[in-house]
Amino acid sequence: MTTTTHDFSGRTLLLTGAVGTIGREIAKRFLASGANCVVTDLDLDAVTSFARDLDPNLERVLPLKHDAGMPEDAERVAQAAKDRFGAIDFVVTSAGLYKDAMVETMTDAQWKQSLAVNLDGVFYTCRAAIPHLAEGGSIVNIASVAGHRGSFAHAHYAAAKGAVLTFSRSLAVELAPKIRVNAVSPGLIDGPMVQNLLQMTGTKLIEQTPLKRLGKPEEIASVIAFLCSSDASFITGASLHVNGGLYISS
């Protein structure tokens, strides 16, 4: 059996955090489904070389520098997407920052940096994209299991991700019926983001996961593709957990 595939030809994805573990798989999947991809991340060289790997002549991929915490970057990126491909059909916010810090000793700067990337970035990116969104479009914000249940030594991250969930629901009501807005909450996905955590906790978290393994970044990308597709045309304001059963709630 293979995953279901979708036809996104002629449609355009705006993706933040595109050179991250999950972001790369999202870009690959949408490109393979025929979409144009505007791939953005902090480091222009990294995102450009990733884009060239995907599409050597950069015909359907546009790499751009984008600091998620900067509103003017979001405006520039959304305008560039519109200028190059005509409109934006899908927005996926994958930029994220997961740093360890206990509340008692957390500095203002640490708190602000986490909120800037994980929450403000989602707001800036969505706000900038709205005027260019095509009818029938879809926004998927990546939250986290941390946004539902909290997270030891990551209160700033969990608070931001929880806010992303309620932001997404609110935006779903504002943009309905033309645009759908949903959130995806990954559990433990194999990549650099979880290495520290796994070093600290050993195999405990995998044992607690009913499917007894880490998720693969492709398994997040396939859920996001579903939510953007017409197969999910009656799904809006929802959040979908992809965690192998590690957190079973709501």
Binding site: T3, P210, E219, V223, A225, L240, H241, V242, I248
Partner: peptide, 13 residues
């Protein structure tokens, strides 16, 4: 489908 291979224990609205 395999698209949901890491999704379990969830309720999708």
């Amino acid at each position: 489908s395999d698209s949901a291979s890491f999704v379990t224990g969830q309720v999708v609205d």
